[in-house]
């Protein structure tokens, strides 16, 4: 479900001038979008609700530090992402993988060809929907923040590479590389569960 920017109710100038009603209008128009992003990060309804409130409070208290080099709503989302990251670090049960482990989940090549072979997937035949979701969340939890967040922003939020790069403060090239590596790592983690068994 894409989240197209809808900043029509955001009067940045009034907000920066201390107009509380304008700030609250932004809260009304952006709460749902922010909740979805944070929920996609933390996958915990209660935590996401609480983090939304904390995000707007931090934004309100720190309006002075908004430099205007992005949209105000993007700046607020950035605060939400940082809070979601902190929450994940404190509450995630499993240790995210390091770069070495990530590398092991990328395909190997020899003379330009894959060294391994692949069986077609048939996820709907090999696992029930609830089970599939559980497996995907477990795999996502194994990714480090920097990989997980590009999956959230590009594949779930369906934000453009440009928007993702701006929100994460990285280059567009870095977004593309991380996204590709993250998808390949997820593919490797999910492969044992979804490869068809033709034997």
């Amino acid at each position: 479900m894409p989240n197209a920017p809808s900043s029509s109710r955001v009067d940045t100038e009034a907000i920066l001038n201390g107009d509380r009603a304008a700030f609250e209008a932004m809260v009304e128009s952006e709460t749902s979008r922010l909740f979805h992003i944070i929920l996609r990060y933390v996958n915990d309804d209660e935590a996401a609700r609480s983090l939304v409130q904390e995000t707007f409070l931090q934004a309100y208290k720190n309006l002075d530090s908004f430099r205007g080099d992005s949209k105000l709503t993007s700046w607020v989302i950035g605060i939400g992402i940082n809070l979601a990251r902190s929450w994940l670090r404190k509450n995630k049960r499993q240790q995210p993988m390091d770069e070495e482990a990530m590398e092991r989940l990328q395909p190997d090549f020899r003379f330009g060809r894959y060294t391994g072979s692949f069986e077609p997937w048939d996820p709907e035949q090999t696992a029930e929907r609830t089970e599939r979701k559980k497996l995907v969340h477990k795999a996502l939890d194994e990714l480090s923040d920097s990989y997980r967040e590009v999956i959230v922003l590009r594949d779930l939020e369906e934000r453009s590479t440009k928007e993702t790069a701006e929100l994460l403060n990285i280059s567009r090239g870095a977004v593309r590389v991380r996204l590709h590596r993250a998808r390949q790592a997820l593919r490797s983690l999910l492969n044992p569960h979804f490869a068809s068994d033709f034997s």
């Binding site: 929920l39 077609p120 779930l156």
Partner: peptide, 26 residues
Amino acid sequence: ETCRTYLQQYRATIDLVKEADPVNDH
């Protein structure tokens, strides 16, 4: 065939991530 199957898995990975979107339950 190897690349074709890998592409199928790559696309299926994206579809599975979308299917598991927590927002679908809201």
